[in-house]
Design a protein around this nucleic acid. Sequence first.
DNA 1: GCCCCACTGTAAGGTTCCTTTACAGTTACC
DNA 2: GGTAACTGTAAAGGAACCTTACAGTGGGGC
Lengths: 386, 386
Amino acid sequence: MSKAPKTHLIRDTNDRAALDLMLANGPVTKTRLGELVGLSKVTAGQLLTRLGERGLVEVVGSQQGGRGPNAALYGVVPSAGYVAALHIGPDRITASVADITGNELATGALDPRESSDPVEAVRATVAGATRSAGITMSQLRCLSIGTPGMIDPRTGDIRFANDLPDWRAGVLEELRRSFQRPIMIENDVNLAGLAEQSAGASHGVKDSVLAWIDRGLGLAVIVDGRLHRGAGGGAGEIGYLAIPGASTPHGSDSPQHAAFQSLVSVEAMDTLARAFGLRGSGVDCVKTAVEGDPDAEPFLDELARRLALGLAGICVVLDPELCVLAGEIGQAGGAVLANRVQKAIASLGPNVPTVVASRISGDPVLRGALQMGLDTARDEVFSSQG
Amino acid sequence: MSKAPKTHLIRDTNDRAALDLMLANGPVTKTRLGELVGLSKVTAGQLLTRLGERGLVEVVGSQQGGRGPNAALYGVVPSAGYVAALHIGPDRITASVADITGNELATGALDPRESSDPVEAVRATVAGATRSAGITMSQLRCLSIGTPGMIDPRTGDIRFANDLPDWRAGVLEELRRSFQRPIMIENDVNLAGLAEQSAGASHGVKDSVLAWIDRGLGLAVIVDGRLHRGAGGGAGEIGYLAIPGASTPHGSDSPQHAAFQSLVSVEAMDTLARAFGLRGSGVDCVKTAVEGDPDAEPFLDELARRLALGLAGICVVLDPELCVLAGEIGQAGGAVLANRVQKAIASLGPNVPTVVASRISGDPVLRGALQMGLDTARDEVFSSQG
DNA sequence: GCCCCACTGTAAGGTTCCTTTACAGTTACC
DNA sequence: GGTAACTGTAAAGGAACCTTACAGTGGGGC
């Protein structure tokens, strides 16, 4: 109810609700839209006329089989806007381009070693992906970038990214200058958490965490349905978490080795597999163990125990309803590992979440970045000012 | 924009905003209210007429010193509703009665050993407090109760309270039957966190935690300005937190002694003080150390180190902007302890919050309970249905 | 094969709630 | 003693929703 921007406040709210409904449920008739948004048939019709004149919705068909005349079906116009999402990894940059409805049009990839300049690398990858998608870069409403490393929640800029020496503070500003449009950078693990929430295991769950167990270790914290970044963007940096009662079976027991990162990463699994006398990489050993190899059983139990030692502390603090295991190790462990971790957590503390494996196919980070990009693109395109 | 309860949706929102503004800023004139709420002078006048007819606001004076006629000052009518708040401790029940503006009218206390029945104890304490306040129990809009123990966020009932054997699951239902009005039970530490947020150190801070260090140990987690209870109400039960690298200087080092609870409670401080060859209780030793006694210095350092070991893990997960130390030990430690804890956290991890001591005078739990009670009473009284 | 009923889509008029404009009355300040 | 700045109310206007009414369309019962 603020005074200045009161131009069409209620109407804007209803327009946006209608657009979101059409994106979520697909094409709808006038009458149905009215029921869903809470408007009369007449007002819903006026709303659709308005959005049609702005080029945001169009008739996409008609509903067959009804009693009376076939009602027109209205849907969001896909070409109303496009977004590009990127996942910056140490040895691979991947990109995805989608239209405003969330339909993925094309993907692209680049070896980051081709260029040490982040802006150049991003431009090249995005250019390739947009070309395959059959659109121009100028049609992109915004760019959404997932990286390892910590983001300053005030500025949105990178604070530091250990695995990406070329991505330093100031990159956001350079990218914005180069692209002249909204650009967001977000932590990769947080994006995996968003992806899981929007279309995966934690969909509809209010309080959940996603543990990313890969070369690095991280945690996405979702409280009350919203991603929690922390005051300095450092929430979920559980690689630093000091783990009590942890000791590698044949390794040293000194304090500096008790960090969570050193216990459950891809690298740590390689070491652990060797310590258990297993062949192959740590990830492979997880897979064979999950498939039922009895020789790998103790190895998997130790992994579950280590994970539980760290997660138990997190559960004591947050008491999440659900804990999703993701990343290369989490995905390899699947439901088998998840169940064991849940049991192990139950033996360690009072708060026991349901533990499950990731349900996102493909790259969850890229998926999350796309979701974040779509959210802001829709805010832009659908707002009456845009 | 739902269809059924559309009766005066905008109007209700504005009415509530006006009432909240008058509660926060004190009496206001028609014109000023219009500016604050975002309405025209005319509409603000109609709004005040409406609320006046409902007995919620009244003219409480006139603004002197202006140019034109002295504008009437409108304020919330205190007698529009009353609330009672209770703090149930193992050996003391305290109560407080306030009017809808938050003005505390009377307090009361009871020894819980007088009656083993929670309902009887609550009735007796509330009866005493309302009598001193000069109102009847029937004028109470709601009852808000702080207890140790875990609350089920779905039912609002007690799951279990270790320190209160008579308070078990089902108490909420009995209380509701006895009082026939809204009753809320909340964890004491969470209430201390709410008190600190509404009128203490964490006022206006989005992401903060409050560590309660007393006979028991607990953590109130505030994310995005809202108290986080967790899926099972167990968020912040950090007494169970397993602490790495912890060992009592002269005590045992076995795993079962590494729980946070055993390291920093009032009892643990008694033991620690003896271990350092100090006289007096642990709390007294904290006080003398804070006052500058050099003999107690190492004792205080060890307390800060222990606190930091636990809080560092919490900061890695949540990255709060602020960490408030409360409870008997936290309050006794004051700014001196807070500063040392902050330094110690900085040496243990990447996320370093500002650490401060509680700023609530009196009983923070009772204060938080009152705040929670006021919130729901206002929802009731101010809603157009009420 | 015909009629009717359920449905679509539009037009007209009504309600709610806020706004602007206008004006009469009051008081500090020059 | 006049004016500028303010208060408070009345009247008219506009935004955004609603209901009612009606012409048109097509599947299913008879």
